[in-house]
């Protein structure tokens, strides 16, 4: 008769957990794409740059004390440049790490662009006067070395006067690429993970894409924490069942006589 009471209880517990919807949630978007990983650890050439305020600095002076996020754009872009820079700006703002953890360099790849164009771009983004946001132009030869090192491609379409080009954000740490992001889905989340890595926070794992049921832990890029997933609940089932069964069996107390 003890069986008739404890077994349904434990069976119900077990079923409830197993039937509960799998912890689908968003997979941690931490995986590095092959194209991005190709850039990892590459050396970035140290070239002179002209900043929006007219100063000429060497690129290495920008990554000397903290990592430098490098992205490319050109002023007259009618396409992705402005929205992409906007995403980066918002992501940096949300992350709150600029200045303290890194600075950002937006480098123009259009030879026509001047320091004045850089100022107007900074104004357009509302970043004028932000000391950690640098807009710069470079000599054609220097530019080619940087874009070549980072596999950044661009091609002028003579018909429209517009460039075909990619969207890239490369984190340069002491002259080497620590992480690279190509634009695309999940950019903001991946940016957060990158920012964490730049701060030196080590994310001990990332998941590879599959349709696994009931994970134990998942990684939350917003808080930077591992959070418990449904799998952990399953891990607790044996203990809960054992407790339930034990209390069930001992509930009536000893029989005297």
């Amino acid at each position: 008769m003890w069986i008739s009471k404890s077994v349904p209880v434990s069976a119900a517990c077990l079923l409830a957990v197993l039937v509960a919807p799998a912890g689908v949630g968003a997979e941690p978007p931490g995986a590095v794409s092959p194209t991005e990983s190709r850039l990892l650890n590459r050396s970035v050439p140290d070239v002179p740059l002209q900043l929006a305020d007219g100063r000429t600095v060497s690129m290495s002076s920008l990554w000397q004390d903290k990592p430098l996020l490098v992205t490319f754009f050109y002023r007259n872009c009618h396409g992705i440049c402005s929205p992409f820079l906007g995403w980066v700006r918002d992501a940096v703002r949300d992350d709150g790490g600029s200045g303290r953890d890194y600075r950002i360099l937006a480098l123009s790849f259009d030879e026509e662009d001047t320091a004045a164009d850089m100022r107007s771009q900074a104004d357009a983004l509302g970043l004028a006067g932000d000391p950690d946001w640098l807009f710069a132009v470079a000599e054609p030869e220097a530019l080619a070395r940087v874009t070549g090192a980072l596999d950044f491609w661009y091609r002028l379409d003579p018909a429209t006067g517009q460039y075909d080009h990619g969207a890239l954000l490369a984190a340069v740490h002491e002259g080497r690429v620590a992480r690279a992001l190509l634009g695309g889905s999940g950019f903001v989340e991946r940016f957060r993970i990158m920012a964490r890595e730049l701060r030196g926070e080590f994310i001990p794992f990332y998941t590879v894409p599959n349709q696994t049921a009931w994970r134990c832990f998942s990684f939350d890029p917003v808080s930077g924490r591992l959070y418990m997933d449904w799998g952990l609940l399953i891990l607790g089932v044996p203990t809960l069942v054992a407790m339930a069964v034990t209390f069930g069996l001992f509930r009536r107390g000893p029989r005297r006589g």
Binding site: S37, L40, N41, H173, A178, G200, E201, F202, P204
Partner: peptide, 14 residues
Amino acid sequence: PYAKEGTKADRIIY
């Protein structure tokens, strides 16, 4: 052996 904060490898092998 778990990686600590601030660790950056010289080389990454997959």
